[in-house]
Amino acid sequence: MNGPLDRILRVWQLYALLALPLLYLIVFKYVPMYGAQIAFKDFAVAQGIWGSEWVGLKHFDRFVHSYDFGKIMANTLLLNVYNLIAGFPFPLLLALGLNYVRVRWFKKTVQMVTYAPHFISTVVMVGMLFELLDPRNGIANNLLQAFGFETINFMGNPDYFKSIYVWSGIWQSAGFNCIIFLAALSSIDPSLHEAAVIDGASQRQRMLHIDLPGIMPVAVILLILNMGSMLDVGFEKVLLMQNPLNTRTSEVIDTYVYKVGLVSQAMNYSYSAAIGLFKSVIGFFLIVAVNQIARKTNQASLW
């Protein structure tokens, strides 16, 4: 007999390895979809999900026509676009630079120094920012005073919020994210570099004409995936950095959901679920759109 069951039994170890991640996806990704229906209901705990009244798109309409919708969407999109434009090139440039370093101890030191911030928790990171940017005793303001400038309340000025959020994030994640590009660079055929050296190509020329085209498919895939999370912001970091003085530019979708849908006395779970579903649908369409653009420009794509 050579049926499907026999073939499975012959390589049962592989199916056993597949079972755990598959179980994780089912339990934590697909089962929760059952609760997404409360976005279309006036959910009441006493009545349960099925017993709650069906209201259709009421909560979506409420969010779109809310007074804060324009400000929240603008803050979320601007913060993500800023983060994408400023943060995306740094891991790439760091990987290209490290790839050409031949002094082993220096390369290892740079890798360790740039990777280390990734392992700092969000709470500790924000605490460090408050200490460094403190108006009275922070290092940044001490340096400003030393050069004769006035002190600045960085965390209280809404105009500085996005820059502080983005550049602290780049410092924390650039080293770790460049691992992906280093792996892509290691897969480039060495004979291409050997032929280029024989032809007299400089390091800059090899970087532009061999390394960049070699890692571009990986960069495009990462860009597509990042576009899918365009409305997702680091909730914990934004919430910890937020205060009444900078709310004008720091209020994003995630913090709005937390405050209006969960913290307020109304405890409107349906409204929170509707906003979360709205965000997911927008992210899905962005992934599809960017993937189609990548395909039409003959770049790598997810499908």
Results as ranks from 00 to 15, higher is better:
G3W: 14
P4H: 03
R7Y: 10
L14N: 11
L20D: 08
P21T: 10
Y30M: 12
V31K: 04
A39T: 10
A39D: 08
K41P: 07
Q47Y: 08
E53R: 15
L57G: 11
A74R: 15
Y82T: 10
I85L: 14
P89A: 01
L92M: 14
L98H: 05
N99L: 01
Y100N: 05
V101P: 00
T109Q: 06
Y115K: 00
S121D: 01
M125C: 10
L129R: 04
L133A: 06
N137V: 11
A140I: 15
N142W: 10
N153H: 13
S163C: 00
I164F: 05
Y165A: 03
W167G: 00
S168P: 02
W171E: 09
G175R: 00
A183Y: 07
Q203E: 12
H209S: 13
M216W: 12
A219S: 09
G228H: 04
S229Q: 13
D232H: 11
Q242R: 12
N243Y: 12
P244H: 03
E251K: 09
Y258S: 14
V263E: 15
Q265C: 03
N268V: 09
S270C: 11
Y271C: 06
A273W: 07
A274C: 01
I275Y: 07
I275E: 09
L277M: 13
F284E: 07
L286P: 12
